[in-house]
């Protein structure tokens, strides 16, 4: 192409529509399904059940839920124009590094700021539900992040574009065609900028969103730390009881 001329608006419009459609098709729970009024919050009886679980059982339950969510993110990526045109190595690298990041972005859709609960296991659950994991610090950081991102009140389209932006991070290690990913991420960022302007969002929201990326990465890093700590405690557990996709993504 002739240097870095920014893509025509029609290209950006088309990419924006493609990503928003992909998001709605693969968002796992539709917005209306997630209405807190549709779901009960975890009752004391349930709470006792969760808190009485062994650390291994609770880790296994959460690993299964994370893996379910990640599969929807893989389908989201496949539907984004340009992703399947990347070389297979880069598709794998972006998903391995970014799928859990996108799950954290999507989680704010399933967060109820009224009572600091998140949709989990068909109920709205607070941080205390996850006590048996033995990761209270990480769990409270995750809820804090969900609270802060949901306070931006992103529309579905904005959430979809931000998810795509996070996924197509060109600074991932081991990318073979870094420039191609950079161009794709830049296009997505411009499309996101256009959408935020169209939605008359306040000036600083794009900067706020880009700043959230470092927090998302810190959460993913701490997830890996907790995983290696639990694996040191129960070496067999991850191998025998966690979903294969979870092991493939986070095992090494």
């Amino acid at each position: 192409s002739n240097g870095d001329s920014s893509p025509p608006d029609s290209d950006l419009e088309h990419l924006s529509e493609n990503i928003c459609k992909s998001h709605l098709e693969t968002c796992q729970y539709l917005r209306e399904e997630l209405q807190p009024s549709n779901w009960q919050t975890v009752l004391q009886t349930d709470l006792d059940t969760y808190q009485k679980k062994s650390q291994e059982d609770m880790w296994q339950l959460c690993a299964v839920k994370v893996t379910e969510a990640v599969q929807y993110v893989v389908e989201f990526a496949k539907r984004i124009d340009g992703f399947m045109e990347l070389c297979q190595n880069d598709q794998i690298v972006l998903l391995k590094a970014g799928s859990l990041e996108v799950v954290f972005v999507r989680m704010c859709r399933a967060y109820n700021s009224q009572n600091n609960t998140v949709f989990f296991d068909s109920k709205y659950a607070g941080p205390e539900v996850f006590k048996a994991l033995g990761c209270d610090d990480l769990i409270s950081s995750v809820f804090e992040f969900a609270k802060s991102l949901s306070s931006l009140q992103l529309t579905e389209d904005e959430n979809g574009l931000f998810s795509a932006y996070v996924l197509m991070s060109a600074d991932r290690s081991w990318l073979q065609e870094k420039t191609r990913v950079e161009k794709l991420q830049q296009k997505i960022k411009l499309a996101m900028q256009n959408l935020l302007q169209k939605n008359q969002r306040d000036e600083g929201i794009l900067t706020k969103l880009v700043c959230k990326v470092s927090i998302i990465r810190m959460l993913c890093h701490r997830h890996m730390e907790k995983l290696s700590a639990i694996r040191a405690l129960y070496p067999e557990m991850v191998q025998t009881r966690f979903p294969p996709l979870y092991k493939e993504l986070f095992g090494s």
Binding site: Q71, V74, Q88, S252
Partner: peptide
């Protein structure tokens, strides 16, 4: 390919939104 068999398979198979 060996290390990421499942991801490769998910990327290859064309699943419709219904499957999701």
């Amino acid at each position: 390919k060996e290390k990421h068999k499942i991801l490769h398979r998910l990327l290859q198979n064309s699943s419709s939104p219904v499957d999701l």
